[in-house]
C-alpha cells in the first residue's frame, strides 16, 4: 500500500465519523433492517407490521396506504403488481431517477441543464396530484377504485 492510499483511507475515515455521515449510515442500516422484514413477510397475511394509523382512525385511505404491501411485492420482483397498491411509488421512482440523471449530467458531465423539479409549475402539479390521489382513491367507483390500495 502506497502512502497516498493510506492517507486517502484515513481521510475516508474522517468523513465517515462526521456526525452527518454517521447519521446517514445509521439510517441506512435501520432502513436495510426494516426492509429485510418485507422480503420474508407479506404485510397482508402477517400481523407483525403496523396498520396505517390514519386508516385505523378515520376508515379512509391516506396517500401512503398500501405502501407496505407495495414494498413487499416489489421486493418479490413483482414491480407492476407492487405499484398498483400505491401509484405514488412510481412517481417517487421517477423523481429519484430524474435526480440521479440530472446529477450525473450536471455534476459529472458538466452540462448546464435546468432542473425541472425547481420549476414552480412542476412542484405545484405534484402537490395537486398527491391531494387528488388522496381524495380519489377513497371514491369507491370503478376508475377511481383502481387507485385504492
Amino acid at each position: 500500500m502506497s502512502p497516498s492510499s493510506d492517507w486517502r483511507s484515513w481521510e475516508l475515515w474522517e468523513v465517515a465519523i462526521k456526525p452527518k455521515y454517521f447519521l446517514i449510515t445509521l439510517a441506512g442500516i435501520i432502513i436495510l433492517a426494516m426492509g429485510s422484514l418485507y422480503v420474508f413477510f407479506d404485510p397482508s397475511e402477517t400481523a407483525i407490521f403496523p396498520k396505517c394509523p390514519f386508516f385505523w382512525l378515520t376508515g379512509l385511505y391516506c396517500p401512503g396506504c398500501g405502501s407496505q404491501r407495495a414494498i413487499f411485492h416489489i421486493l418479490q420482483g413483482d414491480i407492476i403488481g407492487g405499484i398498483q397498491y400505491n401509484i405514488l411509488l412510481a412517481l417517487l421512482g421517477l423523481i429519484l431517477l430524474y435526480q440521479l440523471i440530472y446529477y450525473v449530467l450536471n455534476n459529472r458531465l458538466k452540462r448546464q441543464i435546468r432542473n425541472w423539479l425547481y420549476m414552480p409549475m412542476v412542484t405545484n402539479t405534484i402537490l395537486i396530484v398527491v391531494i387528488l390521489f388522496w381524495i380519489l382513491r377513497n371514491v369507491p367507483v370503478y376508475p377511481f377504485s383502481l387507485l385504492a390500495p
Binding site: 386508516f55 396517500p63 401512503g64 405502501s67 400505491n86 411509488l89 420549476m119 402537490l127 388522496w134
Partner: peptide, 21 residues
C-alpha cells in the same frame, strides 16, 4: 408522504412547492 400516514408529509410537499414559487 408515502411512508407516514400523517399529514406531515403533505405539509412538507407544500413547503417544497413554496421554495420554488
Amino acid at each position: 408522504t408515502i411512508l407516514c400516514c400523517l399529514p406531515a408529509g403533505i405539509v412538507s410537499i407544500v413547503y417544497s412547492t413554496k421554495v420554488n414559487s
